[in-house]
Amino acid sequence: MKLPNIVQELIKAQNNFDSEAYANLFSETGVAYDEGKTHTGRKEIQKWIAEANEKYKSVMQAVEYTEKGNKGILSAKVSGTFEGSPAVLKFNFEINEGLIQSLKITG
Rank of each mutant, 00 (worst) to 15 (best):
M1K: 08
M1S: 14
K2E: 15
P4M: 06
P4R: 03
P4L: 05
P4W: 02
I6M: 09
V7P: 03
L10T: 08
L10C: 07
A13H: 11
A13E: 12
A13C: 09
Q14C: 11
Q14P: 05
N15G: 04
N16C: 07
N16Y: 06
N16D: 14
F17M: 06
D18E: 08
E20P: 02
E20V: 12
E20S: 12
A21Q: 02
A21H: 00
Y22M: 00
Y22L: 00
A23Q: 01
F26L: 10
F26R: 10
S27N: 10
S27D: 09
S27H: 04
S27A: 13
G30Y: 11
V31K: 14
A32G: 07
A32F: 11
A32K: 13
Y33P: 04
G36T: 05
K37C: 07
K37Y: 09
K37P: 03
T38E: 14
T38L: 12
H39N: 10
T40W: 03
T40P: 03
R42A: 01
K43D: 15
E44Y: 07
I45A: 04
Q46R: 13
Q46G: 06
W48I: 02
I49T: 09
A50C: 01
A50N: 06
N53V: 00
N53R: 00
N53G: 01
E54D: 10
K55Q: 10
K55S: 08
K57N: 09
S58Y: 11
V59E: 09
M60F: 07
M60E: 13
M60P: 05
Q61C: 09
V63N: 10
V63F: 06
E64F: 05
E64Q: 11
E64N: 13
Y65Q: 03
T66A: 10
T66W: 01
E67N: 11
E67W: 04
K68S: 15
G69S: 13
G69I: 13
G69Y: 12
N70M: 03
K71E: 15
K71L: 06
G72H: 01
G72K: 02
G72E: 03
G72V: 02
I73M: 10
I73T: 15
S75V: 12
S75I: 12
A76K: 05
S79L: 02
S79E: 15
G80M: 00
G80H: 01
G80E: 03
G80I: 01
T81W: 07
T81K: 15
F82R: 00
F82V: 00
F82N: 01
F82E: 00
E83C: 04
E83Q: 14
G84V: 06
G84L: 04
S85Y: 08
S85C: 08
P86S: 12
P86V: 10
V88S: 02
L89C: 07
L89D: 08
K90A: 12
F91A: 01
F91I: 04
F93T: 00
F93W: 00
E94V: 15
E94P: 04
E94N: 13
I95P: 07
N96F: 12
E97Q: 14
E97K: 14
L99G: 07
L99H: 14
I100M: 03
Q101C: 09
Q101N: 14
Q101W: 09
L103H: 05
K104Q: 11
K104C: 07
T106K: 03
G107L: 08
